[in-house]
Design a protein around this nucleic acid. Structure first.
Length: 651
RNA sequence: GCCUACGUAGCUCAGUCGGUAGAGCACUUCCUUGGUAAGGAAGAGGUCACCGGUUCAAAUCCGGUCGUAGGCUCCA
C-alpha cells in the first residue's frame, strides 16, 4: 500500500496510507479532536472530513470553533433544518440555505407561513434528527442525474438552480437519511455533530431577492460548536437590543415619532435637539477652519430646477410628489446640490476664487418606501451636513484628500475605530448608459481619487460598477453596536454639472473653464449619525454631547439653597445642569440620574454647603470625594471644549 | 412597495370562554429631612390605534385603514 505525507499547520508531518480520510487522521491525533472536528482544510480548501486523500497534503483539521469550521457547522445546521421542515411539511419546496455571519437561513416555498409554534416544533424535530446521528454523505452527479433526481422529487427550485450552474462545474448532492439536497458542501460528517443551535425568527424573502419573484418563507437560526458559544451569542443579541437607538431614544427622551405627523418624520425632543446642535457646532467650527462658506437655501423649488439637475429623470421615485402652485410644479428638495450650484452660478468666478466650498445644514425630504423606514436610521425628513466644493482639476486631489481627512478627524472625536472606505468606480462597458460618457474624465478622476487615498494612507476597497451616474464616490461604512452596517458618510465627484448647470470660471489665460464638483457629507445626516451615536455610545455620551451634563443633587431641603447656587454657577459657565428638588432620599436621586445616564453628579449636603464644596460622583467611577467648585468648573469646561471621550471604553 | 407579526395609562406589560379595565415604574399631594443606584401613604391618569361589521353585549371575533417591528429590495 502506498503512503502519503501529511503536513499539519504547526509544520509537523506524519505518514498515512493513501486514501486515508481527514476524519481518520483526526482520530489518529486524538479522540477529542475527532469528536470536535467538523471539516478539514486540505491544501487550503475546506473539504468534507470523509474525502479520502490521494496525495501528499497540507491538512488542517477544523473544529466548529474556527471561522471556517463554524461556517460549515452553520451550513450543516441549515440542512438539518431543511430536513426537519420536509419531515413536518412534506409539501414544502426547498430553495437555498446558506451560512451568513454567525447565522444561517433557509428559504422554503410553502403554503401560508411559519408560526412561532412551527418554529418550536421544527427546532424540536431538528434535535430529534440530530440525535439520530445520520451520516451525511456527498455524491457527485452528472447534470442529467441531478435533473432527474430533483425533478422526481418535485423540487422545482433546485431544478432551476441546476440549470444555472455552469457547464463544467461539479454537481454534488448531500444526503442524510431520506433527505437529499443539491449542495456544493462541505458538511459535517453526521447530524450528531450539530448540538447547540436555535431558530431565531422567520420572515418573507423573495426568490433570488427579486421583488418580481415569488415570496418565500425564510427561517433564520444560529448554531455553535459549544453550549457556551451559543449562550454568549444569544446574550450578545440581548445586549444589542438594549442599545437599540429606538429604545434608548425613548428612554432618554431624545426623539419621537407621531402617527399624525407621519412615518419617517422624527420630532426632536429637547434632549435630542442638544445632540443635533452640538453636532452642528462641531461641523460649523471644523468647516470654518477648513475654509468653507455657509449658505442657506429654501426647502421648496420649481420642478424646472430638478429637470436641469437630472433628479426628475433619475430620482423621481424617491421624491415627494409635486405640489401645484399657480399652475407650476414645486417640489420639496431631496438634495441641496442644485441650490448650491445656483449659488456658484450667481456670480462670475475666477480661478483666483477657487476652490469655493459651500456648506449648509440643509433639510431634505425623500419619499422612502414605507418598508424601508427604520427608526432614525432611515427617515423621510433629514438634515445633512452637506457641502459642495468647486475646484480646478489641479486642486481636485488635495481637496478630495482634505475631505477624507475630515472623516478621520471626526471618527477620532467619536472613537469610531471600525470603518471601511469603499471607492465605487465606473464600469467602462456602461459608458453612455448607466454612466455619463466621458471615459478620460472617469479614468483621470478615479486615478486622482486613488492617489489622494494612498497619499493620505487611507485603507479602502475598490468596488467596480458601483459609481453614481455622475462620478466616482467614496462611501464610509460603519457598524453599529447591534451589528447593523450603515453608510454614514459619502464623498462624491460630480461630472454632470458642466453640461447641466453651465458652471464656469475664468482661468489665468482668460478662458472659460468648467470646475469639478465634490459633494461631501462626512457626518451623513443628523438623523442617521445620531442614531448611530446612540448605539455606539449605548446612550452614555461623552460630556460635550450629553444632553444633561451635570445633575445637582441636594441631600435634603436644608442644602437646597446652596444647590441652587451651584446650579446657577454651572449654567453661567455654559454647562447643562439639572437640579433635583424632589423630596427623595439621596440614593433615589442618584439612581434616577444614573438611569438617565447623566455623566456627572454633584451631591450637596450640609457639609458641602458649610465648606462651599461639592461631592463629585461620575458615572462608571463612583464617589470621587469633595471638591471645590473653583477647581471643578475649569476641568469640566476643558473636557467639554476638547470633546473628550468618556474614560470607559464605549464598545 | 411586498410577506409576516404586533398596537391596552407617559413607560414596561397583564387581561382566561365575548360580559363593560389591571399591575409596576413615572406623575400629583401629604408624611419623612435623609450621605452615594429605589423611605412611606394616598390620589389622579384609558375613545383598549382608527373606521366599519357580527352580537343582547367587543380590548377580545371578522373586514378595512393607519402606525410599528422583523425580513426582502433600495439608500444618507
Amino acid at each position: 500500500m502506498n503512503t502519503i505525507s501529511v503536513t499539519f499547520p504547526d509544520k509537523t508531518q506524519r505518514t498515512y496510507e493513501q486514501g486515508i480520510t481527514p476524519l481518520a487522521i483526526a482520530e489518529s491525533i486524538g479522540p477529542r479532536l475527532a469528536q470536535s472536528a467538523v471539516a478539514a482544510e486540505v491544501n487550503g480548501i475546506v473539504r468534507d472530513l470523509t474525502v479520502p486523500l490521494s496525495e501528499n497534503s497540507q491538512v488542517n483539521i477544523l473544529t466548529g470553533e474556527s471561522p471556517q469550521g463554524h461556517e460549515v457547522l452553520l451550513h450543516s445546521t441549515a440542512h438539518l433544518m431543511a430536513q426537519a421542515v420536509k419531515e413536518l411539511f412534506p409539501d414544502a419546496k426547498v430553495t437555498i440555505g446558506p451560512a451568513i455571519q454567525n447565522r444561517f437561513y433557509y428559504d422554503f416555498d410553502i403554503e401560508g407561513t411559519f408560526s412561532e409554534e412551527d418554529l418550536r416544533s421544527i427546532e424540536a424535530k431538528m434535535k430529534e434528527i440530530a440525535r439520530r446521528k445520520l451520516s451525511i454523505s456527498r455524491k457527485e452527479l452528472t447534470r442529467q442525474e441531478a435533473l432527474n433526481l430533483f425533478s422526481s422529487m418535485n423540487e422545482s427550485y433546485k431544478v432551476e438552480i441546476l440549470e444555472a450552474i455552469p457547464e463544467d462545474d461539479i454537481i454534488s448532492a448531500y444526503s442524510q437519511g431520506d433527505f437529499v439536497d443539491l449542495c456544493r458542501g462541505p458538511h459535517v460528517p453526521d447530524t450528531g455533530k450539530i448540538k447547540y443551535f436555535k431558530l431565531l425568527d422567520s420572515s418573507g424573502a423573495y426568490w433570488r431577492g427579486d421583488e418580481k419573484n415569488k415570496m418565500l418563507q425564510r427561517i433564520y437560526g444560529t448554531a455553535f460548536a459549544t453550549k457556551q458559544g451559543l449562550k454568549d451569542y444569544l446574550y450578545q443579541l440581548e445586549e444589542a437590543k438594549k442599545r437599540d437607538h429606538r429604545k434608548l431614544g425613548k428612554e432618554l427622551e431624545l426623539f419621537t415619532f407621531d402617527e399624525e405627523v407621519g412615518p419617517g418624520l422624527p420630532l426632536w425632543l429637547p434632549n435630542g435637539t442638544i445632540l443635533v446642535e452640538e453636532l452642528e457646532s462641531l461641523a460649523k467650527e471644523t468647516e470654518r477652519k477648513a475654509g468653507y462658506l455657509r449658505v442657506r437655501t429654501p426647502h421648496l423649488t420649481k420642478g424646472k430646477l430638478y429637470e436641469r439637475s437630472g433628479h426628475l429623470e433619475h430620482y423621481k421615485d424617491s421624491m415627494y410628489p409635486a405640489m401645484d402652485v399657480d399652475g407650476i410644479d414645486y417640489y420639496v428638495k431631496p438634495m441641496n446640490c442644485p441650490h448650491h450650484h445656483k449659488i456658484y452660478a450667481a456670480l462670475p468666478r475666477s480661478y483666483r476664487d477657487l476652490p469655493i466650498r459651500l456648506a449648509e445644514y440643509g433639510a431634505c425630504y425623500r419619499y422612502e418606501k414605507s418598508g424601508q423606514l427604520f427608526g432614525l436610521m432611515r427617515v423621510r425628513s433629514m438634515q445633512m451636513n452637506d457641502a459642495h466644493i468647486y475646484c480646478t482639476q489641479d486642486q481636485f486631489k488635495q481637496e478630495f484628500l482634505d475631505v477624507c481627512k475630515l472623516y478621520l478627524y471626526y471618527f477620532k472625536i467619536f472613537g469610531i475605530e471600525k470603518y471601511e472606505m469603499r471607492l465605487s468606480l465606473h464600469d467602462p462597458a456602461e459608458l453612455g448608459g448607466k454612466y455619463i460618457n466621458a471615459p478620460e474624465l472617469w479614468l483621470q478622476t478615479e486615478q486622482a481619487v486613488r492617489e489622494a487615498l494612498q497619499e493620505g494612507n487611507l485603507n479602502y476597497t475598490e468596488i467596480p460598477g458601483e459609481a453614481a451616474f455622475y462620478g466616482p464616490k467614496i462611501d464610509v461604512q460603519v457598524w453599529s453596536a447591534i451589528g447593523r452596517e450603515f453608510t454614514l458618510a459619502t464623498n462624491q465627484v460630480d461630472f454632470a454639472i458642466p453640461e447641466r448647470f453651465n458652471l464656469t470660471y475664468t482661468d489665468e489665460a482668460g478662458h472659460e473653464q468648467t470646475p469639478l464638483c465634490i459633494h461631501r457629507a462626512p457626518l451623513g445626516t443628523h438623523e442617521r449619525f445620531i442614531g448611530f451615536l446612540i448605539e455606539h455610545f449605548g446612550g452614555d455620551f461623552p460630556l460635550w454631547l450629553a444632553p444633561i451634563q451635570v445633575a445637582v443633587l441636594p441631600v435634603s431641603e436644608k442644602s437646597l439653597a446652596y444647590a441652587r447656587e451651584v446650579q446657577s454657577l454651572l449654567i453661567e459657565h455654559n454647562i447643562r445642569a439639572d437640579l433635583d428638588t424632589r423630596p427623595d432620599k439621596i440614593g433615589a436621586k442618584i439612581r434616577q440620574s444614573e438611569l438617565k445616564r447623566i455623566p456627572i453628579m454633584l451631591i450637596i449636603g450640609e457639609r458641602e454647603a458649610r465648606d462651599r464644596t461639592v461631592s463629585l460622583r461620575r458615572r462608571f467611577e463612583g464617589d470621587l470625594g469633595s471638591v471645590n467648585m473653583d477647581t471643578l468648573i475649569p476641568r469640566f469646561v476643558e473636557e467639554i471644549k476638547q470633546r473628550r471621550l468618556p474614560h470607559r471604553k464605549t464598545r
